[in-house]
Design a protein around this nucleic acid. Structure first.
Lengths: 124, 124
DNA sequence: ATCTCTGCAAATGTTTTGCATCAGC
DNA sequence: GCTGATGCAAAACATTTGCAGAGAT
């Protein structure tokens, strides 16, 4: 049976409060402020368990270390600002992928990432 | 000045012959057949240099180790078969991404990956 | 009291780097 | 013969795992 520990609570809290996808080192640093003695292994183990339990879903930008966000949102994609590097959720999905599928192939899923400048950085 | 070594030639040859994106371990194994004594470090160093020289471009599927293919093709995306795990080039691009961009954000680039079954695996 | 979770440290896997030597020019 | 490139081994990172002890139930 699953136990409700301070570490687990701290990690869940951090991800919830962030409102954007976070990577293990970020989660570690932030959760550490609430639970000073915590080890990095606990962060990895907890993330893995939360993924199994579908509390978290991974956000894996090409060429970057994985980040994680709370699961349960509906299908969406992500935008990363080339200037400030923050990752934002995008609502909706352009369902126009069948057009580039080769004949005889079947389409089962897709990943889409957009890059550019967020409102804060579009001026800078 | 840059030198034309057997290792570099072997690596370039392997990637050219493959016709699909390869990862460093694959490149190492295959190039090793042409140049038995070669070390893995040379593969990494050579890939890095070829990226700088724009001979190669990276293919970074979310959650997977990076692969590399010859650069210079025109804009395209990739499809990975969920069954045999091979990666294929897709021609064309559904230019319909502006529709999900938030107001005030500017779009500068995108990455798209499709998943499913290739012709060979659609029956299996 | 039980049994899972944790922290630590060691192990793993991948990519990078230092350095003496080798080889392209 | 210079000087960049290579092979080896060690180092650097990120992530995983074994284990004994702490803590939740």
């Amino acid at each position: 049976m699953e136990r409700n520990t301070v570490q687990r609570r701290a990690i869940h809290q951090v991800i919830e409060d962030a409102g954007r996808p976070l990577g293990p080192p970020e989660i570690y640093e932030m959760a550490r402020q609430a639970v000073p003695g915590m080890g990095i292994a606990t962060v990895y183990r907890t993330i893995k368990r939360m993924l199994d339990e579908k509390w978290l879903s991974p956000v894996e930008l090409p060429g970057e270390a994985p980040r994680y966000e709370l699961a349960g949102k509906e299908h969406h994609h992500h935008f990363r600002c080339n200037n400030c590097n923050r990752v934002f959720d995008l609502n909706g999905c352009p369902n126009a992928f069948q057009s580039i599928m080769p004949n005889g192939f079947s389409l089962e899923g897709h990943e889409l990432y957009l890059f550019g400048r967020c409102t804060d950085c579009v001026a800078a």
